[in-house]
Design a binder for these strands. Structure first.
Length: 604
RNA sequence: GGGGACGUAGCUCAAUUGGUUAGAGUACCGGACUGUCGAUCCGGUGGUUGCGGGUUCGAGUCCCGUCGUCCUCGCCA
């Protein structure tokens, strides 16, 4: 092929001056003058300026004048140093340019529905167009949006992440094994995506929510160190950090205890941060008990980049006549406070009212405020109910200084109070500018000692917090029979900057413990067998002690890339309603296809 | 299912209290220009203000409905 490239658009330097090369790429921008046409030619690797001069070849010059953005061309020419003072420091190739002698137009491109050209930056990288179009339009033309250099970089980062993981785990003697996509629906957990069976009309496969059951079976089969970079599917509503199909790094190990898993994962995470973005993390990662995390940060995945801890205030208001606080505590809730340090000037009375409304919408009873003005004067929305002693204790407890804003909230249960205050804590931090949206700082921690069970008030029974094969702490096993709410699990979450990056547990391999646990969940042996028959079978045939973890790789890539939008780290994502705006999926299918599957649609 | 924000030219946005012919930048088309680099300069094309209904002398603006996108609560072993 005469047009085949001999070098990429990011490589030419002064050492190439004088040589003849061929570049292939997209026209990024064009600048035409009377006697020169300049083209910035772009590919994955960078950008190179090509110049066409009228005095050399009139036909070629005329053809160059026709070029438009996003045309695909092959250009052969001579590398030459730019004229003195004409170097472009924003381009890595900026000291040279290609004097074109031959051009092949490989493909034309109509005016694009939005601008896709790249902008050279001061630090010699390429950035997005100055104004990004609406995301739905960009998703519809994802193949154009994906030309953006930041998306190229993010997907390359994702590749690197996968590679580092595979290298690390391979070196640790893990086997990468695949598990089925077409499986069996289980009643627990998220809503399944179903796939109808043609051979068995009326029967359905379920796409996996995770490879959880299979990886435990692999342990039973003696593959004592397994991992998989697995696609998982859950038919639940989406968020900025949730897609219906997402990728997990699934890991399981035999003959291990919790510390073995945590230590290995710490080494892996350190390796990832070092090799993917050059950030050095120190180990061991701090371990935070679930109960402490909920008390101090109001979240089981606290953002530890800022302090601003929540404090217990129930004792100060034990005898209060303030209705909402009194009622909340009578209902079993708590009164807790937080000091938005230096926040007093940032909040008007109206904004505090809005904060109260938001707090109530999040399940709280009342969010009161205490402002310490610059002159030390104290104002409060509940001044009538604050005795001087209470106020003094309050200020002392938060080490309040002039300019501080203390917010005190109550809700009808301990959990509700904690999470409402936790939501408030994050809002305050955002408002006070304590959170760097570009994620240049990373705070990594484990959250451990999760309760094994949560009370399902609707159903009036205990439900598994993690999943029903999560082992309780050894010392808590007796509590299964007496006080299930106090049982803590050998479960752990890896939390980074307020995101749950990974979660896992040690599994039960002891039959009597498993029975006791099913008992708590209100399941008889027969019911358990019916639901999890093959796994229980397998566990009874000589299961080794085992445990593992699963990473949300999309979220992990988000953290490494410094974005808060999961669609930025997935080549072809779905929108918030789980639609693919490019392909139009999901879509209606032929009656013939439905008929083969034995499916009749309801009239709607 | 609930709450919030948004929808105006291909794209990004503006349009005073409801008031005359809905503007700007960019893209696109044409022209000019001796080295540009998100080129510049001059000119031009481009609009069912998401869609439907209502109020009004008059609606981009107000009201109702609907569609779409994002954020969020519920939901997410």
């Amino acid at each position: 092929m005469p047009w085949r490239r001999t070098i990429t658009c990011g490589e030419l330097r002064e050492t190439h001056v004088g040589s003849t090369v061929t570049l292939n790429g997209w026209v990024n921008t064009y600048r035409s003058q009377q006697h020169q046409v300049f083209i910035d030619l772009r590919d994955r690797y960078g950008m190179t300026q090509v110049v066409f001069e009228s005095e050399n070849d009139a036909d070629l010059f005329a053809a160059a004048g026709m070029l438009r953005s996003e045309w695909v061309v092959s250009i052969t020419g001579t590398v030459r140093e730019r004229l003195p003072g004409k170097a472009n420091p924003k381009l890595t190739t900026g000291k040279v340019e290609l004097l074109a002698t031959k051009m092949t137009i490989l493909n034309r491109c109509p005016a694009t529905p939005f601008e896709v050209f790249s902008v050279p930056q001061e630090n010699a990288t390429l950035a997005d167009p100055p104004q990004l179009a609406n995301e739905d339009l960009r998703l519809q033309y994802r193949f154009l949006d994906l030309r953006r250099p930041t998306l190229h970089r993010t997907l390359a980062l994702r590749h690197r992440l996968n590679k580092v993981i595979r290298d690390f785990l391979d070196h640790e003697r893990f086997l990468e094994l695949e598990t089925p996509l077409l499986g069996k629906s289980s009643p627990e957990g998220a809503r399944d995506y179903l796939v109808p069976s043609r051979v068995f009309p009326g029967s359905f496969f379920a796409l996996p929510q995770s490879p959880q059951l299979y990886k435990q079976l692999l342990m039973v089969s003696g593959y004592d160190r397994y991992f998989q970079i697995a696609r998982c599917l859950r038919d639940e509503d989406l968020r900025a950090d949730r897609q219906p199909e997402f990728t997990q790094l699934d890991v399981e190990m035999s003959f291990v205890q919790m510390d073995d898993v945590l230590t290995l994962v710490e080494r892996l995470v350190v390796d990832i941060f070092q090799k993917c973005i050059g950030v050095t993390l120190t180990t061991p990662f701090p371990r935070l008990k679930y109960a402490d995390a909920m008390m101090r940060y109001g979240s089981d995945k606290p953002d530890l980049r800022f302090a601003m801890e929540i404090g217990e205030m129930s004792d100060l208001f034990a005898a209060t006549e303030l209705g909402p606080f009194k009622d909340a505590m009578a209902a079993g809730g708590r009164v807790r406070g937080i000091n938005a340090v230096g926040g007093a000037p940032q909040y008007t009375r109206k904004q505090l009212d809005e904060a109260n409304e938001a707090f109530k919408a999040a399940g709280g009873r009342l969010l009161a405020w205490v402002k310490i003005e610059a002159d030390g004067k104290v104002g409060s929305s509940i001044a009538k109910f604050l005795t001087p002693e209470t106020q003094a204790k309050l200020l002392e407890r938060f080490a309040a200084k002039p300019g501080d804003l203390i917010l005190i909230g109550a809700a009808d249960s301990e959990d509700a109070t904690a999470s409402a205050m936790g939501g408030l804590r994050v809002l305050l931090a955002q408002k006070l500018g304590l959170i760097d949206p570009t994620m240049k700082e990373y705070k990594v921690a484990w959250v451990i000692d999760f309760p094994s069970f949560i009370w399902d008030a609707e159903e009036g029974r205990w439900a598994a917090n993690h999943h029903p094969f999560t082992a309780p702490r050894d010392e808590d096993v007796p509590l299964l029979a007496t006080d299930p709410g106090k049982v803590l699990a050998k479960a752990y979450d890896l939390v980074i900057n307020g995101y749950e990056a990974a979660g896992g547990s040690i599994r039960i391999h002891d039959r009597s413990v498993q029975s006791a646990l099913f008992g708590v969940l209100g399941m008889t042996q027969d019911q358990a067998r019916e639901r999890f028959g093959f796994l229980l079978d397998a566990l009874s045939y000589g299961a080794p002690p085992h445990g593992g973890i699963a990473f949300g790789l999309d979220r992990f890539t988000m953290l490494l890339a410094g974005t808060t939008n999961i669609r930025d780290v997935i080549a072809f994502p779905k929108n918030q309603r789980a639609r693919d705006l490019m392909t139009g999926a999901p879509a209606l299918v032929d009656d013939k296809q439905l008929k083969e599957l034995g499916i009749n649609l309801n009239e709607t």
